[in-house]
Each structure stands twice: as C-alpha cells, then as structure tokens.
Design a protein around this nucleic acid. Structure first.
Length: 524
RNA sequence: GGGUCUGUAGCUUAGUCAGGUAGAGCACCGGGCUUUUAACCCGGGGGUCGCGGGUUCGAACCCCGUCAGACCCGCCA
C-alpha cells in the first residue's frame, strides 16, 4: 500500500473528518525542500479523499514569525527589522534593500511559491498565521498558556533538555518599535499582557490581536487545537527526539486539544551539496525546478519515495531515469491477479504513486505521458531546432500518431530549457566536432576513409534530406563492401567524436551542407 | 554526549509494520529489427539482503550487539 493511503487509513481509525496541515516560515526564497512538506501533506489529503473520507488541506504560513537575523540576501538595512513579524517588514528589492512599494516580506516570498503550487495541482486553504492572531482565535490558548506557564516551562525543559530563562513567558509581545526582541513581560490581566521594551518604554498587548505571538513550540501546539489538525507531517528537524513535535504533544493536551500523531519526513538534498537552506543559498526553487521538470514528474519523485527516506534531487542524469521510469510505468502499469502478497503490495504501491503524481486529482495517468522517452526527446531537441521537425520525426518513428499532445508540447519546451541551462548532463549533450581528432583518425580503417571520402563527394550536390543521406550511406557502404555499422561508426567518429550516437542522418541534415563539408575537408 | 533515520545486484531501489526459499528498473552482454547505431522487441549474466550473535521448523524482515553514512538536539521543511 502506498504510504499516503496507509496514513489515511490510520488516521480514520483515530479521527473523524481530517484536517491535514503544512506550515512554513516565509523567511526567504522557497525551495523544493518545502515542496516535500507540502506534497507529503497534500498526498495524504488526497488519499483521504480517495478513500471517501472528509478532508481539508490547509497551508499555514508563519507570517507572524520574527525575522531572526539579516540573511545573506538582505542588505544591512534589515538590521532594524530583526524581531519584527515577517508580515510587518517591507519586502526586499532585488539588491536586498527594503522596498517602499508596500509589499510585505512574507507575501513577497509566498506569492511565487503559491503560483508554482498551482502548477503542480496543489490548492490549499492558505492560513496566514498573523490573521489567526488578529482575529483573536489564539486568545483562549494564550490565556491558558499563561495560566499554565509553569507547566509548559517544565514540559519544555524536561522533554527538550534545554534550559529556559527564569523569566520565560509563553507570549512574546511586540514592543514600541515593532520588534519582539528584548521585550520583558511585567504582568498579565486578561486580555492584556503588560511589558517594558528594550527602550524602557512600557506598554500592553491585547492577546485578541496580533500584538505579539507565542513562542514557536507553544504556537505550534496551540494551532493544532485551533484548526483541529489531525495530521501535520513535520521535517525531521522538528521530529528529532526532544524536538518541537515531542513538546508539542503534551502542550497541545494541556491547552485542551487532541494533538495529531507524530509523522516525520526526511529532507531533500541537492545531489552532492547537502541539505538545502534558504539562507545559505544552496537551493533549487520550485519555479526553477518546474522550468526543467514536468509537474507530474516532480510529484512522482516525492510520491515514489517513502517519507522517511531522504531524496537526492538531481537535475542531471538521474532525472532521465526517473522521468523514463514514470513514462514506462504509466504506459505499462503493473497488473495481474493472484500475485504473491509481496508482489501485490509492490503493485499497489506503484499504482498509488502514479495516482498521486497526477496534477489533477483523479485524472487518468495515461494523459500525462508524452509517448516518448526523455532521452530520445533530449536527442531530438538538440539536433532539431524546429518543433515541427520533431513532431514529424516522432510520427515517423511511430512514437506518436498525428499532432503531439499537450503533455509532449510541455515536455519539449522544458527540455529546451534544460538543454540550454547548466543542469543538463554532459553525457547526454551532443557536441559537433570541428574536425576529427588525431586519435579518432587512427581508429579509421582504409575502407572507412574511402567510405567517408566517397560520401563527401556525394554530399557536395545531393538532395539535403534525411532520406537521401540515409540512402547514400546505404549505397556507399554496399558499393565498397563494408558493413553499414562500420560506415556509421566512421561518421560518428568524424562528426561527434564518439563511436556511437543518435541517428546521424538527422544530425547531418540539421547542420548546413557547408558546415558538414567543412568537417569533411578538414578531416580527410 | 543524547537521539532519529538509512545500509538489499555496478547504480536507483521494492519487499521490513502482519517471518515462509530475494523482485524491478537503469547500466552491461547477446540476439532481432533489410530508413533509426541514444528508437523499438526478445533473451542473459549479476545479490553471503553492512557485519556478528539470538529467537524460530524457517529471518532481508523480530530481539541484542556492532560497524558505516546522513541528519537532528538555537533557527531551518
């Protein structure tokens, strides 16, 4: 059974209607690591719906979280905003300076991310956490937390093993300058928390408004209750023993609600360069990824991997493999009756992955495939600059019949982006040689050289079409009595510098006659 | 130091929660395809399931130990 279906099944044994949640702090550029948070939750949500269980998927944006430090992509001017809720900070300009155009920091990073979520078929109910404070929905929990301050203090110290300061308080008010840093609580009288800030100014915060927020570990536990969350997969950072999940569970109960079960997912890493982090700049954004990878493949990468396994995200060679695997599985899905228990499990898991990889829930996966492998398309895209030539070629090779489908058109345009960019794998790149290398020239037999020179003289005036070129290759190899294979090898050595390659006639005719003649004349 | 996860064919991995003689893809090798030599079809070799113990009639799977890697324990998905 697929992990999402399995989780859905477990959830229904425990709760009624489901509220599946994700939560992310918009402190910087979103990256595909965040996509795992989102998709893990969203796939469980879909699995619930598919099992005819009431379910809602919410995406909680931690817009009330304070700016912790001046990240590398921010200018020094942000120093003054440290401790401010992200929603109250101006968005950065491209040069990192704060903008005056009225957009806030949280929305600045959130907007593009929500756009890419649409592209992968994720439509959450977005909850801005500052709104929840503003609307007074936290008030009851804040009151309870303050009245149980000692108990919460104890829970956090016991479970996390870290020591909290003597004057720790489960509510951080915003001071007179807008920052939550250095604000000392001096008293509480519902609904007001009284404080003195770092400038020595006194004030009060209304717990029914966004005048402050609870610290992370308490905030998280409280919101589980407020939104009735039944499942919120957490990154392994929160999942560590003594981490915020472990303290959240008893705190949530203390605040009068039933916590969700613990579920922890592994991180996505960039192949070879470790974990992703918005602040270190080691990221691939969802937009960048969607520029190269079709959305269903991106979903498939997450869907096929067990939640507790880390994913090496790689835009290089393994992307071919994953994409072709997807293509193959969709066009030839596992089937069969009377399988052994294990085979049946494997079959159901794969079918689940394919089902959950669809951009539109419930859509037939066969609509999402292009009918041609990534590898083949990569080859065609490199040797043919006109899309129509590619469709013709694919018709010819019987990959498609007639016009390309929407999926294929999208694949080709992404493929072209990929080829032009830095992520395209070297060994898939076709490089036209200016002339044959000395080393490769040594490899040619006398007959192969004869073949090339005869071909060269025919090329001077022949019809410049794939068919004609192919015919010539056939005719000349026959004429001088060498195997066709040998003829092809000679051409590959000459034009690509390797002894194998894609259909050479396409490459030859894609290049101009002049270019080809130059290679020949320089090499022979 | 404390903790979590991972370790199965050259590579990516399924199977571990409910124990019943290791399954797939890629790559590789061989064959076929008389316009596809990065296409397509067929076939093949390849694994002491990290290591050592234990429980069991039987262990990749359960238990104990051990090694290696990744990560968490201020913030981070």
């Amino acid at each position: 059974m697929h992990w999402a279906d399995h989780t859905a099944m477990r959830l229904t044994e425990q709760y009624g209607p489901q509220v599946i949640a994700s939560g992310i702090t918009p402190s910087g550029e979103f990256h595909i690591g965040h996509l795992r948070e989102i998709l893990t939750a969203e796939m469980i949500h879909r699995a619930c719906l598919d099992a005819k269980i009431d379910s809602e998927y919410i995406f909680i944006v931690d817009s009330m979280d304070p700016l912790r430090r001046v990240y590398s992509f921010l200018s020094d001017e942000y120093e003054k905003y440290i401790g401010y809720p992200l929603v109250n900070i101006p968005a950065p300009n491209p040069d990192g300076s704060p903008s005056n155009e009225g957009k806030n920091y949280a929305n600045h990073f959130l907007g593009p991310f929500l756009e890419s979520l649409k592209e992968i078929g994720v439509y959450p109910r977005v909850v801005m956490n500052h709104k929840t404070y503003e609307d007074g929905e936290f008030a009851e929990k804040i009151d309870l937390a303050i009245n149980n301050k000692e108990k919460i203090h104890e829970i956090i110290e016991n479970i996390s093993g870290r020591e909290l300061p003597e004057d720790w308080f489960p509510y951080n008010p915003i001071g007179s300058d807008g920052s939550m840093d250095g604000v000392r609580v001096t008293g509480y009288e519902r609904p007001y928390v009284f404080w003195t800030d770092k400038h020595g100014i006194d004030g009060r915060s209304d717990i029914r408004k966004a005048d402050g927020k609870m610290p992370w570990r308490v905030d998280w536990a409280a919101r589980w209750g407020i939104h009735g969350i039944t499942c919120e997969p957490a990154g392994k950072d929160h999942g560590a023993s003594g981490g915020s999940f472990d303290t959240g569970i008893p705190i949530c109960k203390l605040l009068g609600s039933e916590p969700p079960g613990k579920m922890v997912y592994e991180w996505i890493q960039l192949k070879g360069s470790g974990p992703m982090s918005s602040s270190s700049g080691n990221t691939i954004g969802p937009i960048e990824a969607l520029d190269l990878v079709p959305p269903e493949i991106l979903r498939y990468i997450i869907a096929r991997t067990k939640v507790k396994k880390h994913i090496d995200f790689d835009t290089g060679p393994s992307l071919f493999e994953t994409a072709d695997e997807y293509e193959r599985l969709v066009s030839n899905p596992p089937s069969g009756e009377g399988l052994s228990k294990k085979k049946k499990v494997a079959k159901d898991t794969i079918l689940g992955s394919l089902r959950l990889s669809q951009v539109n829930r419930g859509e037939d996966p066969s609509k999402s495939i292009a009918g041609v492998s990534f590898r083949h398309l990569a080859m065609l895209a490199q040797i043919k600059s006109r899309d129509q030539d590619i469709w013709d070629s694919l018709n010819n090779s019987k990959h498609i019949d007639g016009e390309p489908n929407e999926s294929l058109v999208g694949r080709l345009s992404r493929m072209r982006n990929w080829i032009e960019g830095v992520h395209f794998p070297d060994d898939a790149r076709i490089r036209i040689q200016g002339q044959i290398s000395e080393e490769n020239k040594q490899k040619l037999t006398e007959q192969q050289k004869l073949f090339l020179s005869e071909l060269s003289s025919e090329f001077e005036s022949c019809e410049w079409t794939e068919n004609r070129v192919n015919e010539l290759i056939r005719e000349i190899t026959m004429k001088i009595g060498i195997g066709r294979r040998e003829g092809y090898v000679a051409l590959y050595l000459l034009i690509l510098g390797t002894d194998y390659g894609p259909r050479i006639a396409s490459i030859i005719t894609e290049l101009s006659r002049k270019q080809i003649m130059q290679i020949f004349s320089k090499s022979l």
